[in-house]
Lab assay of single mutants.
Amino acid sequence: TETRTFTDEREARRFEQEARDNGKDVQVRESNGKFEVRVK
Protein backbone atom coordinates (compact mmCIF):
# COMPACT_ATOMS: atom_id res chain seq x y z
CA THR A 1 0.00 0.00 0.00
CA GLU A 2 1.31 3.40 -0.98
CA THR A 3 -0.05 6.63 0.49
CA ARG A 4 0.48 10.00 -1.09
CA THR A 5 -0.72 13.28 0.37
CA PHE A 6 -1.65 16.22 -1.83
CA THR A 7 -2.69 19.74 -1.01
CA ASP A 8 -3.99 20.32 -4.53
CA GLU A 9 -7.17 18.41 -5.37
CA ARG A 10 -6.41 18.42 -9.09
CA GLU A 11 -3.06 16.73 -8.49
CA ALA A 12 -4.71 14.21 -6.17
CA ARG A 13 -7.36 13.39 -8.77
CA ARG A 14 -4.76 13.05 -11.52
CA PHE A 15 -2.74 10.65 -9.37
CA GLU A 16 -5.93 8.74 -8.50
CA GLN A 17 -6.95 8.42 -12.14
CA GLU A 18 -3.49 7.27 -13.18
CA ALA A 19 -3.52 4.56 -10.52
CA ARG A 20 -7.01 3.44 -11.56
CA ASP A 21 -5.91 3.29 -15.18
CA ASN A 22 -3.16 0.93 -14.03
CA GLY A 23 -5.77 -1.33 -12.44
CA LYS A 24 -4.98 -0.35 -8.87
CA ASP A 25 -7.43 -0.15 -5.99
CA VAL A 26 -7.53 3.49 -4.91
CA GLN A 27 -9.07 5.28 -1.94
CA VAL A 28 -9.15 9.05 -1.52
CA ARG A 29 -9.71 10.70 1.83
CA GLU A 30 -10.00 14.42 2.39
CA SER A 31 -9.06 15.92 5.73
CA ASN A 32 -8.19 19.47 6.68
CA GLY A 33 -7.93 20.49 3.04
CA LYS A 34 -5.42 17.75 2.28
CA PHE A 35 -6.09 14.80 0.03
CA GLU A 36 -4.74 11.43 1.07
CA VAL A 37 -4.60 8.96 -1.80
CA ARG A 38 -4.05 5.33 -0.85
CA VAL A 39 -3.09 2.88 -3.57
CA LYS A 40 -3.21 -0.88 -3.06
Rank of each mutant, 00 (worst) to 15 (best):
E11T: 05
R38Q: 13
Q17C: 13
V26T: 07
R38A: 10
K24P: 01
V39Q: 03
R38C: 15
R38S: 14
V28T: 08
K24I: 08
D21N: 12
E16I: 14
D8F: 00
R14F: 08
E9G: 04
K40V: 13
G33D: 06
F15I: 04
V26S: 03
S31A: 12
E16N: 00
T1S: 11
R29F: 15
G33V: 00
E30D: 06
K40A: 13
N22L: 14
R13H: 08
R10D: 15
S31L: 14
D25Y: 09
V39S: 04
T1A: 11
F15R: 02
R4I: 13
E11R: 00
R10F: 14
E18G: 05
F35I: 11
F15K: 03
R13K: 10
A19K: 03
A12W: 00
R13G: 05
E2I: 15
N32S: 05
K24M: 14
V39T: 09
V39W: 05
T1N: 11
N32E: 10
D8K: 00
R10H: 14
S31G: 07
R29A: 09
E2V: 14
K34W: 12
K40L: 14
N22C: 14
K24S: 10
G23R: 04
F35N: 02
V26P: 06
K24Y: 15
R38W: 09
E16V: 09
R13Y: 04
E2D: 08
T5I: 15
D21G: 09
Q17M: 07
V39G: 02
V37Q: 01
F6G: 06
Q27M: 12
V39A: 05
K34A: 10
A12N: 01
R14P: 02
E18C: 13
A12D: 03
R10P: 07
A19V: 06
D25T: 11
V26G: 01
K34D: 05
V26Y: 02
R10M: 15
R14S: 09
A12I: 02
T3N: 08
V28G: 02
E30K: 10
R20T: 05
R13I: 08
V39E: 03
K34P: 01
Q17S: 07
D21P: 00
D25A: 08
K24A: 11
S31K: 13
D25S: 12
E9S: 04
E36L: 07
R4S: 07
E11K: 05
R4Q: 09
F6Q: 05
E2Q: 12
S31E: 13
K34C: 13
Q27L: 11
F6H: 04
K40Y: 07
S31N: 13
E9M: 06
T1V: 13
G23D: 04
E18N: 08
R14V: 09
E16D: 03
